[in-house]
Every structure is written in C-alpha cells, then in structure tokens.
Amino acid sequence: MKLSLYQVDAFTSTLFKGNPAAVVPLEKWIDDELMQKLAMENNLAETVFFVPSKTEGADYDIRWFTPELEINLCGHATLASAFVLYTQLGYNKPSVTFSSKSGLLTVEKNGTNYEMDFPSWKPERINDYPEGIAEILGVKEILGAYKYRDLMIEVATEEEVVNAKPDFTAMKKTGEMIILTAKGNTVDFVSRFFAPTAGIDEDPVTGSAHSQLIPFWSEKLDKKRMIAKQLSKRGGDIICEQKNTERLMMGGECVFYMKGEFEIAG
C-alpha cells in the first residue's frame, strides 16, 4: 500500500516557522492502529488524515493523531489540510467543510489566508487546579485558572509567558494539557501550549487552544476581531474573530515544505 504525505508549516508565511503538520489524504479509512503508528513515526505534533465524506454538509471526514493518541480537535492540521487540498490536489470550491469529532469545520480561502470556522469553547474560572502549578510552569504569579478542555493559566505579562520554564515531568503527572496566556504587548494576546500527556512537551502553534483563548480574550478585551501570537520557539500568528457564543474564526497562512510517500507492506 502506498500513501502520499504532505508536510506543511501552518499559521505562518515563513518556512520553518509556525506549526508543521503531516497531511495524509486517503480514499478510504485505514486501520486506527496504522494511523497511530504513522503519527508516531512522523513524530510531529499532529498527523492528519481525511477521506471523502458521506456526511450531509461535509466534503471530507477528518481525524488527527499526536505521536501518542487521537485528539478531538486540531486547528493547525485542519488549516494544513485545506492548504493541501487547494494547492496540491486541485480543490477549487470557495470553502471546504470537514466532518470531525468536534462537528463540522469549514475553512474558507481568503487570498493567502485560510479562515476556519471553529467551535467556541469559553473556559470557566476554576479554583481546583493542580497544586504547585506556578512552580511547574516556572512563572511568578497566577492571575487566574480556567478550563474547558484544557487548563488555561493567565499571567500578568507577555514577558512571563516568554520566560516560563516548565517542568514537563511534573506537568505530565498532573494529566493536564496547559495553555499559558497573557495580554500582548504588540498583539491582543499571547500564549504557549504544553501537552506532555499527549507526547508534545510544547506545541508550536495550537488552533484548538485558541478555541478557548479567543472567547476568553474577546470578553476580557471587549473585542470581536483580534490578532494573537503563540510564543513558541518557532512562533505563529493567528487571526481571530469571536462570531457568536457558539462559533469563532481563526486563520492564517501556510507554507509548503515537502511531499513524500509511505510504502507499507501487506
């Protein structure tokens, strides 16, 4: 069996920046175990697979795998999938809709940007969070802890986000995937995302985390349209818009890196 693979840097206009995703288009689903093994072999934050959909209102069904497990939502790999469809596979409709474990996700091509319609996951403030989380993250003071899917920690300044030095061994023991965020200096808000429990110590740019970040900062800043930056080593830029209580938009550019091929015996 031969399968094509495309590697794309998402949420960036510069090669070797943003978040790399491995994109594997399929004609029909292959075994879950094989998809997980391919994701482990690729050893990127996510390997994404999609097939033509039979779901009403969808063009493709989509699934995402980290090196260790399948996840229910991934922004950068969805962005990369749309980019591959438009630039490599001849897709030419105004938008593409994916059916996923988080519902329908529509991506619209707008010039060089790809804008995704995603669920809005407004996190709620919590008081019961892992003991010593400030020390685990390597930050001075926590302004607040919030949660929807992931634990989100707010700190006072962009500099604290940049300078945080997490203890990933201790973090993994908490069982949490953690978003660290603050108001930005030159953009509306900044963040970093840590997921050692999913086999990713720090993710370069995380769309699913912005499903929580966008409603949080939209309310806090009283703004609908915002610009965000993820402050990983590679870095990434995200266009954000809170559409309503249920949906939001996040978008950015992508850069093609390579095309390859798997050849799997049997």
Rank of each mutant, 00 (worst) to 15 (best):
G236T: 04
I153P: 03
T112A: 13
E70T: 09
C74M: 10
D61M: 05
F256E: 15
E219T: 11
K37D: 14
S53R: 13
F83I: 08
S120K: 07
E27T: 11
T186N: 11
T78N: 02
P52R: 01
I62L: 15
G199A: 02
V48P: 01
C240Y: 00
D9I: 11
K172G: 05
A198W: 09
V139Q: 10
P166W: 08
D203F: 12
A134W: 00
C240H: 01
R234M: 12
T197Q: 14
H210R: 03
L104I: 00
D59W: 06
G111I: 08
S218K: 01
R225Q: 12
L104F: 04
K140P: 12
Y114L: 13
I142D: 03
Q230G: 01
S95L: 07
I179L: 06
M226V: 04
I227P: 05
I264V: 12
Y129W: 05
E261S: 12
L89F: 11
A21E: 01
L248Y: 01
G103L: 10
Y146G: 04
N42R: 05
G57Y: 00
S95D: 08
N19D: 09
F16P: 09
D9S: 12
T47E: 00
Y129R: 02
M35S: 06
A80R: 11
I238K: 05
A134N: 07
E141F: 05
L69Y: 10
F83H: 13
D9H: 10
P196S: 00
F118C: 03
Y257Q: 14
G138K: 06
G260W: 12
K172H: 03
Q212I: 04
V139C: 08
M171W: 01
R192H: 01
V8E: 07
V205N: 03
Y257G: 10
G18S: 10
G199N: 04
F11G: 02
P130W: 05
L248K: 06
A82D: 11
A10T: 11
E68Y: 00
R63V: 03
E27P: 04
K243A: 09
A195D: 11
P130V: 06
L34H: 11
S81M: 11
M40D: 12
Q36I: 08
R125Q: 14
Y257C: 14
F216K: 05
G57Q: 06
F216G: 06
E158I: 02
V96M: 09
P166V: 04
P67Y: 00
D167E: 04
M226L: 07
E159C: 12
D59V: 15
E108F: 07
R63C: 01
V24W: 02
T181Y: 02
A228V: 02
E131G: 01
